[in-house]
Amino acid sequence: MMSTETNLYPAALNGQAVDAADLSPLAFAGFAHFTAIQVRDRKIRGLDLHLKRLHNASLDFFGRALPEDTLRARIRQAVDAGPQDQSLAVTVFSPKGEFTRESMEGDLAVLVRSGPPSNGPKGPLRLAVVEHERPLATIKHVGESGKTYYLHQAIRQGFDDAAFIDRHGRLSEATIWNLVFFDGETVIWPKAEMLTGTMMGTVQRQLERLGMPQRQEEVTLSRLKELSGAAVMNSWTPGIAVSAIGSRTFPEARAFMDLLHRAHAAEPAEAV
Protein backbone atom coordinates (compact mmCIF):
# COMPACT_ATOMS: atom_id res chain seq x y z
CA MET A 1 0.00 0.00 0.00
CA MET A 2 1.29 3.45 -0.89
CA SER A 3 1.95 5.78 2.03
CA THR A 4 -0.24 8.80 2.71
CA GLU A 5 2.68 11.10 1.91
CA THR A 6 3.21 9.40 -1.45
CA ASN A 7 -0.47 9.89 -2.33
CA LEU A 8 -0.40 13.48 -1.15
CA TYR A 9 2.78 14.38 -3.03
CA PRO A 10 2.88 12.42 -6.30
CA ALA A 11 5.61 12.34 -8.95
CA ALA A 12 5.01 12.45 -12.69
CA LEU A 13 7.30 11.66 -15.61
CA ASN A 14 6.19 13.40 -18.81
CA GLY A 15 2.80 13.83 -17.21
CA GLN A 16 2.34 10.17 -16.23
CA ALA A 17 2.52 8.62 -12.76
CA VAL A 18 5.85 6.87 -12.18
CA ASP A 19 6.88 3.59 -10.61
CA ALA A 20 10.24 2.12 -9.60
CA ALA A 21 10.98 0.92 -13.13
CA ASP A 22 10.48 4.42 -14.53
CA LEU A 23 12.82 5.93 -11.95
CA SER A 24 15.56 3.29 -11.95
CA PRO A 25 17.53 4.87 -14.85
CA LEU A 26 17.72 8.07 -12.79
CA ALA A 27 19.01 6.41 -9.61
CA PHE A 28 22.65 7.24 -10.40
CA ALA A 29 22.19 9.77 -13.18
CA GLY A 30 24.31 12.90 -13.04
CA PHE A 31 23.56 14.65 -16.34
CA ALA A 32 20.34 16.51 -15.68
CA HIS A 33 19.25 19.93 -14.49
CA PHE A 34 16.36 21.13 -12.39
CA THR A 35 14.60 23.96 -10.65
CA ALA A 36 13.08 23.96 -7.16
CA ILE A 37 9.74 25.72 -6.71
CA GLN A 38 7.63 26.67 -3.73
CA VAL A 39 3.89 26.64 -4.37
CA ARG A 40 1.56 28.63 -2.12
CA ASP A 41 -2.21 28.69 -2.62
CA ARG A 42 -1.52 26.94 -5.96
CA LYS A 43 0.49 29.95 -7.17
CA ILE A 44 4.18 30.54 -7.81
CA ARG A 45 6.34 33.64 -7.44
CA GLY A 46 8.99 34.12 -10.11
CA LEU A 47 7.51 31.49 -12.45
CA ASP A 48 9.04 33.23 -15.47
CA LEU A 49 12.50 32.86 -13.92
CA HIS A 50 11.99 29.13 -13.31
CA LEU A 51 10.90 28.62 -16.92
CA LYS A 52 13.83 30.68 -18.22
CA ARG A 53 16.23 28.64 -16.05
CA LEU A 54 14.93 25.34 -17.46
CA HIS A 55 15.08 26.66 -21.03
CA ASN A 56 18.61 28.03 -20.84
CA ALA A 57 20.02 25.02 -18.98
CA SER A 58 18.51 22.65 -21.56
CA LEU A 59 20.19 24.59 -24.35
CA ASP A 60 23.52 24.44 -22.49
CA PHE A 61 23.25 20.72 -21.66
CA PHE A 62 21.43 19.25 -24.64
CA GLY A 63 21.49 21.87 -27.38
CA ARG A 64 17.71 21.94 -27.41
CA ALA A 65 14.87 22.83 -25.07
CA LEU A 66 11.28 21.84 -24.46
CA PRO A 67 8.54 24.32 -25.44
CA GLU A 68 7.45 26.58 -22.59
CA ASP A 69 3.89 25.31 -22.99
CA THR A 70 5.09 21.75 -22.24
CA LEU A 71 6.93 22.82 -19.11
CA ARG A 72 3.95 24.85 -17.93
CA ALA A 73 1.64 21.89 -18.50
CA ARG A 74 3.87 19.57 -16.45
CA ILE A 75 4.14 22.06 -13.60
CA ARG A 76 0.43 22.85 -13.70
CA GLN A 77 -0.43 19.15 -13.52
CA ALA A 78 1.67 18.80 -10.35
CA VAL A 79 0.19 21.92 -8.80
CA ASP A 80 -3.36 20.73 -9.49
CA ALA A 81 -2.67 17.20 -8.24
CA GLY A 82 -1.10 18.21 -4.93
CA PRO A 83 -2.06 20.31 -1.89
CA GLN A 84 -2.46 24.08 -2.13
CA ASP A 85 0.99 24.51 -0.54
CA GLN A 86 3.84 22.24 -1.65
CA SER A 87 7.40 22.05 -2.95
CA LEU A 88 8.17 21.00 -6.51
CA ALA A 89 11.39 19.79 -8.10
CA VAL A 90 11.23 19.94 -11.91
CA THR A 91 14.06 17.93 -13.51
CA VAL A 92 14.88 17.80 -17.23
CA PHE A 93 17.01 14.96 -18.62
CA SER A 94 17.63 12.82 -21.68
CA PRO A 95 15.93 9.40 -21.65
CA LYS A 96 18.91 8.16 -23.67
CA GLY A 97 21.03 8.31 -20.52
CA GLU A 98 24.53 9.76 -20.27
CA PHE A 99 28.07 8.96 -21.47
CA THR A 100 26.62 8.29 -24.95
CA ARG A 101 26.20 10.25 -28.17
CA GLU A 102 22.52 9.28 -28.12
CA SER A 103 21.91 11.41 -25.04
CA MET A 104 22.10 14.44 -27.33
CA GLU A 105 19.29 13.09 -29.52
CA GLY A 106 15.54 12.67 -29.24
CA ASP A 107 12.97 14.21 -26.95
CA LEU A 108 13.82 15.43 -23.46
CA ALA A 109 11.95 14.13 -20.42
CA VAL A 110 10.54 16.03 -17.45
CA LEU A 111 10.25 14.55 -13.97
CA VAL A 112 8.18 16.56 -11.49
CA ARG A 113 8.36 15.53 -7.85
CA SER A 114 6.18 16.98 -5.10
CA GLY A 115 6.90 17.34 -1.40
CA PRO A 116 5.83 19.26 1.69
CA PRO A 117 6.19 23.04 1.57
CA SER A 118 9.28 24.51 3.21
CA ASN A 119 10.35 27.92 4.50
CA GLY A 120 13.87 26.81 5.35
CA PRO A 121 15.61 26.83 8.73
CA LYS A 122 14.94 29.61 11.20
CA GLY A 123 18.54 30.77 11.54
CA PRO A 124 20.66 32.69 12.10
CA LEU A 125 23.30 30.50 10.45
CA ARG A 126 27.05 30.31 11.03
CA LEU A 127 28.93 29.48 7.83
CA ALA A 128 32.32 27.83 7.55
CA VAL A 129 34.50 29.08 4.68
CA VAL A 130 35.51 26.45 2.11
CA GLU A 131 37.62 26.95 -1.01
CA HIS A 132 35.41 25.38 -3.65
CA GLU A 133 34.13 26.18 -7.13
CA ARG A 134 31.11 24.27 -8.31
CA PRO A 135 31.46 22.71 -11.78
CA LEU A 136 29.17 24.38 -14.31
CA ALA A 137 28.33 26.83 -11.56
CA THR A 138 25.79 28.84 -13.57
CA ILE A 139 23.56 25.75 -14.07
CA LYS A 140 21.40 24.16 -11.37
CA HIS A 141 22.35 20.56 -12.08
CA VAL A 142 22.17 17.27 -10.21
CA GLY A 143 24.93 15.05 -8.87
CA GLU A 144 26.78 17.65 -6.80
CA SER A 145 27.98 15.57 -3.87
CA GLY A 146 30.42 18.32 -2.88
CA LYS A 147 27.61 20.50 -1.53
CA THR A 148 26.50 17.87 0.98
CA TYR A 149 30.09 16.88 1.72
CA TYR A 150 31.05 20.43 2.69
CA LEU A 151 27.83 20.86 4.66
CA HIS A 152 28.79 17.86 6.78
CA GLN A 153 32.36 19.10 7.15
CA ALA A 154 31.07 22.47 8.36
CA ILE A 155 28.76 20.85 10.92
CA ARG A 156 31.67 18.79 12.27
CA GLN A 157 33.54 22.07 12.79
CA GLY A 158 30.65 23.53 14.78
CA PHE A 159 29.07 25.58 11.97
CA ASP A 160 25.60 25.28 10.46
CA ASP A 161 26.59 25.27 6.79
CA ALA A 162 29.38 26.31 4.41
CA ALA A 163 30.10 29.31 2.19
CA PHE A 164 32.33 28.91 -0.87
CA ILE A 165 35.32 31.04 -1.76
CA ASP A 166 36.94 30.77 -5.21
CA ARG A 167 40.58 30.67 -6.33
CA HIS A 168 40.58 34.47 -6.52
CA GLY A 169 39.56 34.84 -2.88
CA ARG A 170 36.00 35.89 -3.69
CA LEU A 171 32.94 34.65 -1.84
CA SER A 172 30.50 33.24 -4.38
CA GLU A 173 27.64 31.26 -2.84
CA ALA A 174 26.88 28.74 -0.11
CA THR A 175 26.05 25.04 -0.46
CA ILE A 176 22.44 25.44 -1.61
CA TRP A 177 22.15 29.18 -1.11
CA ASN A 178 22.87 32.51 -2.69
CA LEU A 179 24.73 34.96 -0.48
CA VAL A 180 23.70 38.60 -0.06
CA PHE A 181 25.19 41.40 2.04
CA PHE A 182 24.31 44.85 3.35
CA ASP A 183 26.51 47.86 4.11
CA GLY A 184 23.81 49.85 5.89
CA GLU A 185 22.62 51.60 2.73
CA THR A 186 23.08 49.26 -0.22
CA VAL A 187 22.31 45.58 -0.90
CA ILE A 188 25.46 43.89 -2.20
CA TRP A 189 25.50 40.75 -4.36
CA PRO A 190 28.75 38.78 -4.75
CA LYS A 191 30.53 39.00 -8.09
CA ALA A 192 31.90 35.55 -8.94
CA GLU A 193 31.05 32.48 -11.00
CA MET A 194 27.86 31.16 -9.40
CA LEU A 195 24.23 30.20 -9.90
CA THR A 196 21.81 33.09 -10.21
CA GLY A 197 18.93 31.89 -8.06
CA THR A 198 15.29 32.41 -8.95
CA MET A 199 14.71 33.89 -5.49
CA MET A 200 17.70 36.14 -6.06
CA GLY A 201 16.16 37.29 -9.34
CA THR A 202 12.78 38.08 -7.81
CA VAL A 203 14.32 39.98 -4.91
CA GLN A 204 16.59 41.97 -7.22
CA ARG A 205 13.80 43.15 -9.47
CA GLN A 206 11.55 44.03 -6.56
CA LEU A 207 14.33 45.94 -4.81
CA GLU A 208 14.73 47.92 -8.02
CA ARG A 209 11.01 48.69 -8.06
CA LEU A 210 11.19 49.73 -4.42
CA GLY A 211 14.03 52.11 -5.28
CA MET A 212 16.52 50.31 -3.02
CA PRO A 213 20.17 50.71 -4.10
CA GLN A 214 21.95 47.47 -4.91
CA ARG A 215 25.15 46.53 -6.68
CA GLN A 216 27.33 43.57 -7.53
CA GLU A 217 30.92 43.52 -6.31
CA GLU A 218 33.72 41.17 -5.40
CA VAL A 219 33.36 40.27 -1.73
CA THR A 220 36.52 38.98 -0.07
CA LEU A 221 36.99 37.87 3.52
CA SER A 222 38.76 41.14 4.31
CA ARG A 223 35.80 43.08 2.87
CA LEU A 224 33.41 41.45 5.37
CA LYS A 225 34.54 43.69 8.23
CA GLU A 226 33.08 46.66 6.37
CA LEU A 227 29.62 45.10 6.03
CA SER A 228 26.79 45.33 8.53
CA GLY A 229 24.65 42.35 7.52
CA ALA A 230 24.68 39.02 5.68
CA ALA A 231 22.03 36.53 4.64
CA VAL A 232 21.40 33.46 2.53
CA MET A 233 18.43 32.83 0.25
CA ASN A 234 17.08 30.12 -2.02
CA SER A 235 13.70 28.89 -3.25
CA TRP A 236 12.64 28.31 0.35
CA THR A 237 13.07 31.86 1.60
CA PRO A 238 14.16 35.37 0.58
CA GLY A 239 16.45 35.64 3.57
CA ILE A 240 17.86 33.82 6.56
CA ALA A 241 20.24 35.86 8.68
CA VAL A 242 23.91 34.85 8.77
CA SER A 243 25.58 35.54 12.10
CA ALA A 244 29.10 34.47 11.07
CA ILE A 245 31.20 33.63 8.03
CA GLY A 246 34.35 31.99 9.29
CA SER A 247 35.67 34.18 12.10
CA ARG A 248 33.74 37.29 10.98
CA THR A 249 30.54 37.86 12.95
CA PHE A 250 27.55 39.97 11.92
CA PRO A 251 24.86 41.78 13.90
CA GLU A 252 21.25 40.69 13.58
CA ALA A 253 20.46 43.41 10.97
CA ARG A 254 16.68 43.17 11.29
CA ALA A 255 16.10 46.05 8.86
CA PHE A 256 18.07 44.18 6.21
CA MET A 257 16.09 40.98 6.74
CA ASP A 258 12.81 42.87 6.69
CA LEU A 259 13.84 44.49 3.40
CA LEU A 260 14.55 41.14 1.72
CA HIS A 261 11.25 39.67 2.87
CA ARG A 262 9.36 42.80 1.85
CA ALA A 263 10.87 42.59 -1.63
CA HIS A 264 9.81 38.97 -1.94
CA ALA A 265 6.28 39.73 -0.76
CA ALA A 266 6.01 42.40 -3.48
CA GLU A 267 6.61 39.78 -6.20
CA PRO A 268 3.21 38.80 -7.68
CA ALA A 269 2.22 35.15 -7.25
CA GLU A 270 1.10 33.63 -10.55
CA ALA A 271 -1.14 30.71 -11.44
CA VAL A 272 0.58 28.35 -13.87
Results as ranks from 00 to 15, higher is better:
212 M>L: 09
231 A>K: 06
171 L>A: 11
131 E>P: 10
120 G>D: 06
213 P>A: 06
233 M>F: 03
172 S>Q: 08
36 A>R: 02
98 E>N: 08
93 F>G: 06
48 D>L: 07
51 L>E: 07
169 G>D: 05
228 S>K: 13
66 L>E: 00
260 L>E: 06
186 T>G: 07
181 F>M: 02
189 W>E: 11
267 E>P: 08
83 P>H: 06
189 W>A: 06
139 I>L: 15
123 G>I: 08
209 R>S: 08
61 F>A: 06
3 S>F: 07
234 N>D: 09
48 D>P: 07
135 P>M: 10
254 R>I: 07
223 R>F: 00
128 A>F: 06
146 G>S: 15
129 V>T: 13
218 E>S: 11
267 E>I: 04
120 G>R: 01
252 E>V: 08
109 A>G: 06
249 T>S: 12
255 A>L: 12
251 P>M: 11
59 L>N: 02
172 S>I: 11
20 A>N: 00
107 D>C: 03
60 D>W: 03
136 L>D: 14
189 W>F: 15
148 T>D: 00
48 D>K: 11
88 L>F: 07
52 K>G: 07
154 A>C: 03
103 S>D: 10
258 D>W: 09
271 A>I: 13
256 F>M: 14
208 E>V: 11
232 V>D: 09
49 L>G: 09
65 A>L: 02
74 R>D: 05
129 V>N: 04
72 R>S: 01
99 F>N: 15
65 A>G: 05
180 V>L: 14
93 F>P: 04
133 E>Y: 02
116 P>T: 06
126 R>D: 00
158 G>D: 10
149 Y>E: 10
21 A>Q: 11
71 L>G: 05
187 V>T: 12
198 T>H: 02
104 M>F: 15
231 A>L: 03
10 P>H: 01
156 R>Q: 12
12 A>R: 12
190 P>H: 14
123 G>Y: 11
167 R>H: 13
88 L>C: 07
150 Y>N: 08
119 N>V: 10
60 D>Y: 00
265 A>V: 01
102 E>M: 12
142 V>S: 04
50 H>I: 00
79 V>W: 09
167 R>N: 13
14 N>P: 03
7 N>M: 11
193 E>M: 10
241 A>N: 14
216 Q>W: 14
127 L>R: 11
160 D>Q: 04
142 V>I: 10
145 S>I: 15
266 A>T: 01
5 E>R: 12
15 G>V: 06
216 Q>Y: 15
199 M>H: 07
38 Q>V: 10
18 V>E: 13
74 R>S: 08
43 K>L: 10
265 A>I: 08
29 A>C: 06
42 R>Q: 12
248 R>M: 10
223 R>I: 04
102 E>V: 09
200 M>G: 11
130 V>K: 04
14 N>H: 05
129 V>G: 13
164 F>S: 11
157 Q>I: 05
143 G>C: 02
237 T>Y: 09
165 I>P: 08
6 T>D: 13
94 S>F: 01
24 S>C: 12
69 D>M: 00
128 A>M: 05
263 A>Q: 03
128 A>K: 02
4 T>E: 15
255 A>W: 08
186 T>D: 08
